[in-house]
Design a binder for these strands. Structure first.
Lengths: 102, 102
DNA sequence: ATCCGTCTTGACAATGTGTGTCAAATATGA
DNA sequence: TCATATTTGACACACATTGTCAAGACGGAT
């Protein structure tokens, strides 16, 4: 199973782009991007969106990968991870049906 | 649907305990506990465990409530929340079957 | 109304976490 | 060896979380 970093690196290399080029476009130091691709640092939402643009990802799909990575990282070591996900699903459904505002 | 704060407050009041008593046991300022019960601040994992002890919750169940709250809060405003959860589930399953260490 | 115990509120300090910057070190290939 | 690309580590800075404290609000009892 690919990590977010691997997904990004594979796509970048397939497109023949350099760290320097992508990081310049995303307006970050290339050291940061290097670390992100090796999962030494975690990207943030804003960066994911920029990377989706330059690397021609579907934005929502890359965001979903990013968010799910974060969640999996948070709860992977809980013995009750399954229960947590089920509860979260219920809560989200509840929030969506009951919230008036955004 | 009850929030973590409401769950804690209800249980505390049913047990007839004061903020002062519970917060002393958990070794935090009672102002913090007051805010947590009104969802003005978020508890952390360590506190959840202490609260489960003194308030006689099942520890794993309270932790599950706590984690799912956090997740729901993180991704409730994503349009692709369902996809995120499904991906997270897959990633967690993968991590559990493939990790040797804890 | 006053007193007393409980809870709430807001301002602030301390601490922790994430993020950005930089330069030196390490590949990799011509 | 030289040039280019990537990696690594140290550091500073900004932002978020957490803890501390005292004053204020509330409710019940007298």
């Amino acid at each position: 199973m690919e990590t977010i970093g691997q997904i990004i690196r594979n796509k970048r290399e397939n497109l023949g782009l350099l760290l320097r080029q992508v990081s310049a476009y995303a307006d970050i130091d290339q050291a940061i991007l290097s670390k992100i691709e090796r999962n030494e640092r975690k990207p943030n939402r804003e960066l994911i969106i920029k990377l989706a643009e330059i690397l021609k990802f579907d934005k929502d799909e890359l965001l979903a990968q990013y968010m799910s990575d974060k969640i999996a990282y948070d709860i992977a070591d809980e013995d009750c991870a399954d229960r947590v996900l089920k509860l979260a699903e219920k809560k989200i459904k509840y929030l969506k049906t009951h919230s008036i505002n955004s």
